[in-house]
Amino acid sequence: MENKKLNEMIITMRRQLHKIPEVGTELPQTKKYVVDKLKSLGLEIKECSLDSGMVCDIGNVNSGNIVAIRADMDALPIAEETGVEYASKNGNMHACGHDAHTACLLGAAYYLLENKDRLKNGAVRLVFQTAEEISKGANNLIKDGLLDGVSAIVGTHVGNIDSGMSNSEFIIQEGGLMASNDKFIIKVVGKGSHGAYPHSGFDPILTASQIVQAIYNIKSREIIATNPVVISICVISGGSQYNIIPSEVNIEGTFRTFSEENRKFIGSRIKEISEYIAMANRLKAEVTIEWGCPPVINDKKIADELTQVCKELGFKKLPQFIPSMGGEDFAEYQQKIPGVFIFFSTMTEKNIPHHNSKFEIDESQLYQPTILMSEWAIKHLENK
């Protein structure tokens, strides 16, 4: 199939998926769309029993030699404001490019079937997962055994990755690419009182402010400065009247790192700091750590293979990329299987970031990640 024809096919599928964005783990319309496309190609599908995810294999499935290509399918609860003719009207939006990821993986199904005679040594597993945005989809597929037998995995993320990138440029590199993504929730419980008589209560607002300052000190005073760490408190809520001290305040935030040691340390310290500062002020802090996903750490051998394929195909690659503090549950696969996560720049002149109601992508080169990942899979299996 010519690149132009493949790209047109991917664009058509991407726009059809863009119209039906769904969030979370249950994606009935999206699942039906993908299943129908795969079945029309004569492919056998294995569905996840825990959500709307699925996988299918192309090639010599009896070889015991399997590599995987992954795409996420979920959207975001954002009302779209792009004004394009294929815009979503259901209150959700593909504002992170997952519609393109899914379309590119469906494109890979067509490409791999055309090259099936080159897959005598093994099979390629196409992995369609849900709930990347809430870090649940990858684990669901793993728990359901749908990654069993896979020896290597790759995936690509499109969009406005870095302002220093040119359009249609890949980021392929070994080591840390994206940070861990964990959440903390702190409920500071005190005793409300009138603002004129603070001595008659236990002030959770004052205590919450002390907790916030102390948590920010973890990075600056307890972790070596050369270790990348981000701690951000993004929600503080409490109170309803200007002259009434409330009985409780809620704090929510996130912490990101490339070190599992730092990850556990920060979670532990947030809990200790919050509880002891609250205790010192005669209040109580209830701390919940919601562990998200670990950091994305790319395998050197697979990164080298992808770089070589990228060069052979004549595609552009950024020489070096400063790792992102954003998170990705592709990391869950990498806990079990050697893998590489790739970035592909599809920024437009508007340069709109992900998770924005006006997010858009340049569709003109979407065939490139499809072919890069497919050719990597074929060559990796040929060399096994």
Rank of each mutant, 00 (worst) to 15 (best):
E8H: 05
E8R: 08
T12K: 15
R14E: 02
R14I: 03
Q16A: 14
G24E: 02
T25L: 14
T25D: 09
T30C: 09
K32V: 05
Y33T: 05
V35R: 13
D36M: 11
K37I: 12
L41A: 07
L43C: 13
K46A: 11
C48Y: 02
D51Q: 07
V55Y: 07
D57K: 14
G59A: 05
N62P: 00
N62T: 10
S63N: 06
G64R: 14
N65S: 13
V67D: 05
A68C: 13
D74G: 10
D74E: 11
D74V: 11
L76I: 06
P77G: 01
A79K: 15
A79M: 09
E80G: 08
T82L: 11
T82W: 12
V84R: 10
S88V: 01
N90R: 01
M93Q: 07
M93A: 14
H94F: 07
G97N: 06
H98Y: 08
D99S: 08
C104R: 01
Y110P: 00
L113P: 01
N115K: 11
R118V: 00
R118P: 00
N121R: 09
A123H: 08
T130A: 15
E133Q: 13
E133G: 13
K136E: 11
K136M: 12
A138D: 02
N139I: 04
N140F: 06
L141W: 07
G145M: 13
L146P: 02
A152T: 06
V154K: 06
V154N: 09
G155A: 15
V158W: 04
N160Y: 15
I161E: 02
M165S: 01
I172F: 05
E174P: 08
G175S: 13
M178L: 09
A179I: 03
S180P: 00
N181K: 01
N181D: 12
F184G: 01
I185W: 04
V189F: 01
G192W: 10
S193G: 12
A196Q: 15
F202N: 10
D203Q: 10
S209F: 10
V212C: 08
Q213D: 05
S220R: 14
R221Y: 14
R221T: 14
E222T: 09
I224L: 12
A225L: 05
V229L: 12
S232M: 12
S232H: 13
S232P: 11
S237A: 15
S237H: 15
Q241C: 08
Y242E: 10
N243R: 14
I245Q: 09
G253V: 06
G253P: 06
F255M: 04
E260V: 04
R263H: 01
F265E: 03
G267Y: 04
R269A: 05
R269G: 05
R269H: 06
I270Q: 05
I273A: 05
I277P: 00
I277C: 00
A285E: 04
V287H: 07
W291E: 09
P295I: 02
V296R: 02
I297F: 08
N298Q: 10
N298H: 10
K300P: 02
E305Q: 14
L306N: 03
G314L: 07
K316H: 06
G326C: 07
E328A: 01
E328I: 01
A331W: 02
E332C: 03
E332Q: 09
K336A: 10
I337W: 10
P338M: 09
K350G: 00
K350A: 10
I352Q: 07
H355G: 06
Q365S: 13
Y367F: 14
M373V: 02
S374M: 03
E375Y: 03
L381M: 06
N383V: 03
N383E: 12
